[in-house]
């Protein structure tokens, strides 16, 4: 984290964020309280923290969808000034477009790419359709498929836009436990194939530990990083569905969960 190391892919530098409140003279609410971190290329980073702590806001600042009150975010050495195709985003709410089929939705991801032509767009869309395992549903409208599938469509569409970094805001939050498990494994496979930097926001401890190379544990609002957990160091980078059964995983999860509990207690 020192300045003379080679530049990290994403650099978050002393970011503060306050939300203005309605009404004259009302004090602004601090949401993010001076966060700094470096994220390397191809690294899977999870922002974990209690609900409403400001972790999503921090991710949205990285995505250019919000601006920091002070501090800055650099992506590949360039200051983030607004949203664009380099910062792909998957939301918790279903954002696949109901007027398009599964395939058309995924292909929509390539619509604003200037680096490829029409034939290549179709090829890219087919590739990601296959990657998220939805070939059987190519021509289905998205409200005829399940919530888990809709999130896979959204992930495929985001990847089809060829972003430099993938930002995921509790994408599996609305899904049932079994679907979640399945999608977590699938996401890891996809990330292994894509080797992209990922920021994944969640308040689910098990999900965080299972997915992450590194977990950043946030305090309750205003968000500060209270602990950085090197998951790879503790349980290795190779994860399968059996990983969750191992002792190492169990211990790490309990440790992180205790941190979460203490933090939740502090709020109350």
């Amino acid at each position: 984290m020192t300045a003379n190391q080679p530049q990290a892919f994403v650099q978050i530098r002393n970011v503060f964020k306050e939300f203005e409140t309605a009404g004259k003279g009302a004090a602004p609410i601090p949401v993010i309280d001076g966060v700094s971190m470096d994220i390397q290329e191809g690294e899977f980073v999870v922002f974990l923290g209690p609900s409403g702590c400001g972790k999503t806001t921090l991710m949205r600042i990285v995505g250019g969808l919000e601006t920091a009150t002070s501090g800055e975010v650099l992506l590949d050495g360039e200051q983030v000034a607004g949203p664009d195709r380099r910062k792909g985003m998957v939301f918790q709410a279903y954002t696949s477009f109901p007027w398009l089929t599964v395939f058309e939705n995924i292909k929509f991801g390539t619509k604003y790419r200037e680096d490829i032509g029409e034939a290549e767009r179709t090829r890219v869309a087919r590739h990601y359709l296959k990657l998220v395992d939805l070939e059987d549903f190519t021509d289905f409208f998205v409200n005829r498929i399940s919530g888990g599938m809709r999130q896979r469509v959204a992930i495929a569409r985001t990847l089809a836009a060829a972003p430099d970094i993938l930002l995921m805001d509790e994408p599996f939050g609305a899904l049932d436990a079994l679907t979640r498990d399945f999608l977590q494994e699938q996401l890891l496979e996809i990330c292994r194939a894509e080797r992209k930097a990922v920021i994944f926001v969640t308040h689910d401890v098990e999900e965080a530990v299972f997915l992450a190379d590194r977990v950043f544990m946030f305090s309750a609002r205003p968000a500060r990083v209270i602990e950085e957990i090197d998951v790879n160091g503790a349980i290795g980078s190779d994860r399968t569905s059996d990983t969750k059964e191992t002792d190492a995983f169990f211990h790490l999860r309990n440790h992180v969960r205790d941190l979460m509990r203490d933090e939740a207690k502090a709020v109350r």
């Binding site: 607004g82 664009d84 985003m89 709410a93 954002t95 477009f97 929509f108 604003y112 790419r113 569409r157």
Partner: peptide, 29 residues
């Protein structure tokens, strides 16, 4: 129309005019 639709447009590289034509209009139709 959901705010996330518009934000999705931005993060896929669309300009406001393109978002209006290809996302807002079909979504509200």
């Amino acid at each position: 129309i959901p705010r996330e639709f518009v934000e999705t447009g931005y993060t896929l590289g669309a300009k406001p005019r393109q978002i209006t034509r290809s996302i807002v209009l079909p979504a509200m139709l």
